[in-house]
Amino acid sequence: MDILSILFYLVASVIILSSIALIVVNNTVHAALLLVLIFFNSAILWLMLQAEFLAIVLVLVYVGAVLVLFLFVIMLLDIQVKKNISKKMYLLFSVFISLIMFIELYMVIFYHDFASIQKEITISELGNTYDIGLSLFTNYIFSFEVTAFILLVAIIAAIAINLNVKQRSLKQNPGKQVLESKESRLKILKDEEL
């Protein structure tokens, strides 16, 4: 067994064990920290597959931004840790479903000849980041711009959902003024009604 195999088995077993711990632990903070561990180990795995750029992006963007966001939300919400009252039936059901999926997909993996699509692995002279950039800015430039737009939409949506505007100062609302009609302000009363 060479050093890369040992590293693969170590990293993969850490990821699998901590993901099992993530789904059975009740404490949300512990789950978020386990997710950090899983993402770090996945970054190591991606480095072993020579995807350096994406490994760094995973650590910087995911661990640095998304999981910190998770931790912030957990901190802000003050959730009391409740005992998971999932019935035993649900646990059995979930294990059953995932076992069926595992067996089916395992058969697909083992009876498919993946060796036929494997090619000679060449290490790019220019580097992984250069290759991704070249592909991104030539063939996939439109998708790249759409992604930028999606991120803009996400920013605006996240702010708009949580923005509650309080009126602190007295100011005129021109739209409301224009929409105002005579009937809404003036009411003509007859003599008998007075």
Binding site: I20, F70, V73, Y90, F93, S94
Partner: peptide
């Protein structure tokens, strides 16, 4: 594949906690 199946099971088990 193992990771995917574990997270499928996680969705069933933690259906009470939206963060999980």
């Amino acid at each position: 594949l193992l990771l995917f199946c574990i997270s499928i099971a996680g969705i069933f088990i933690n259906r009470k906690n939206i963060l999980l």
